[in-house]
Simulated assay, not measured.
Amino acid sequence: MAEIRRLHTSEFKKKAVLLSYERKNVAETAKELDVKPKLLSKWRTIYQKYKEGSFPGEGRKRVYYEDAKIYELEKKLAESQLRLEILKEGIKLKPFGKQAIYNFIHQNKKKYPIGTMCQVLGISTSMYNLRMQQPLSKREIKAALLKEAIATVFYEFKQYRGCVLIARELCRRGIQISEDQVTFFMKQLGLKRKVKKKYKVTTDSNHKLYISPNILNRQFTADKPSKVWVSDITYIQIEKRFLYLTVIIDLYDRKIVGWNLSSVLSTTATILPAWNMAVNNRDLRDGLLFHSDRGTQYANKLFTSTLKQYKCIQSMSGKGSSIDNAVSESFFNSLKRELIYSQKTLLTPKEMRAEIFEYIENWYNKKRRHTALKYKTIEEFNT
């Protein structure tokens, strides 16, 4: 009859070795513990070599005593890296609801442990198993798809769109949804539009130059291109200093027809380069009305003579009245909310120029939807 092999725990082996050192007699200690002297001697040899890492347990790696702490740290580091990898991939799906996370866990169950994914992503393992066993109803599938569409538009428009504009954008894309539904699902998803921030005015109107009357008189519409242009200047903070952005907007389609980014506030560095871009981008009409604030850049002889040369009529806002130039102010408000305030660190001049170009030329003039154009893009409005 074959001898039955006894199994000894790690703790028993360690205590047996320590007891043998204490008794100083391997044979007597082995007899007392009811183990073979040869086996106890083997345990002693192992302990002399590995110390605390001698008996890690079945299926675990035996390590040298000096490396035991390193081994444990490496193990914890590997676990942390795994959890971080799961979090990076799974966190992107948070705005789309729990069903999207359930799907992610199911799709990656061969890549990551299910329990770890559920723990990292804040999902109950039992609820995940239940969801996998019970398919979604048609109503739940529709709600999940609507949530995904809402979150897509919300982030596509840089988190500055509320329920009204999101509902209209989805309807334009062929998804029938009401404003109330968008509000309800946005609350469930925890989506909140970013709050507007105020910005300082850079206009210097304390001068003795000629001030044109306010001919525009807050009539912010035009029935033809190049009939009314409005302009303004704002500051943008960068590393260690400021840049100054000048824009010219055509009220017909709200397009930025001319713009310039400069490091100083002189006329030759602000409005003149923006004007030259504008006249190259659009044909001028005799009698074009050009409206701005009372800043020295617009009131000095260099620029006023340029307007006369092109047979333009100049108009200026009332003193201290930003509402008289509301379209330009609104653009700067959007620019700073959607671009400037979202920057986590101050950019270099080169980086800021690239960001402004991308925002104006590729976003604002092409893709952004404008309330004044009945929620059309500028390109859609002009077709």
Rank of each mutant, 00 (worst) to 15 (best):
Ile236Lys: 07
Lys319Pro: 01
Thr221Ser: 02
Ala222Gly: 06
Gln159Ala: 14
Lys197Ile: 09
Met277Gly: 06
Asn281Lys: 14
Leu77Arg: 12
Thr116Met: 10
Gln81Asp: 11
Glu355His: 07
Thr304Asp: 02
Lys49Val: 06
Gln219Phe: 08
Leu7Arg: 12
Thr125Asn: 07
Ala151Tyr: 07
Tyr199Phe: 15
Ala143His: 10
Tyr155Ile: 10
Lys227Asn: 06
Pro37Asn: 05
Leu189His: 00
Gln188Gly: 04
Gln134Ser: 07
Tyr50Trp: 06
Leu145Ser: 08
Ala372Thr: 09
Ile256Cys: 00
Lys76Ser: 11
Lys350Cys: 00
Met316Asp: 02
Ser266Pro: 03
Lys376Val: 05
Gln107Thr: 07
Ile340Glu: 01
Lys147Pro: 06
Arg294Asn: 02
Thr345Glu: 15
Arg353Val: 01
Gln119Ile: 01
Tyr64Phe: 15
Ala151Cys: 00
Lys69Phe: 11
Gln81Arg: 15
Leu40Asn: 03
Gly59Arg: 14
Gln343Phe: 13
Glu351Ser: 12
Asp180Glu: 15
Glu169Gln: 13
Thr371Asp: 05
Glu79Ile: 10
Asp180Gln: 13
Val164Ser: 10
Thr304Pro: 00
Gln134Cys: 05
Glu79Trp: 01
Tyr128Val: 01
Lys15His: 09
Lys158Thr: 06
Ile114Val: 15
Ile166Ala: 00
Ile215Lys: 14
Leu7Pro: 01
Ile378Gly: 00
Val182Ile: 03
Lys110Asp: 15
Ser54Cys: 08
Lys49Met: 10
Leu77Ser: 11
Pro135Trp: 08
Lys366Tyr: 07
Tyr235Gly: 03
Arg5Pro: 04
Ser20Tyr: 04
Arg241Ala: 10
Ala269Asn: 10
Met127Ala: 13
Asn103Cys: 06
Ala269Leu: 02
Ser212Asn: 08
Ile175Thr: 09
Val35His: 07
Glu169Lys: 11
Lys49Gln: 14
Thr221Arg: 13
Val182Thr: 02
Lys192Ile: 12
Ile114Ser: 01
Lys24Glu: 15
Arg193Trp: 04
His207Tyr: 07
Ser205Pro: 02
Lys376Gly: 00
Ser292Lys: 08
Glu329Gly: 05
Leu84Phe: 12
Phe96Asp: 01
Gly320His: 11
Tyr155Trp: 05
Leu251His: 09
Phe381Ile: 05
Glu380Val: 12
Leu245Ala: 03
Thr203Glu: 10
Ser334Arg: 12
Leu130Met: 08
Ile177Arg: 01
Gln314Tyr: 11
Thr152Asn: 08
Val327Trp: 00
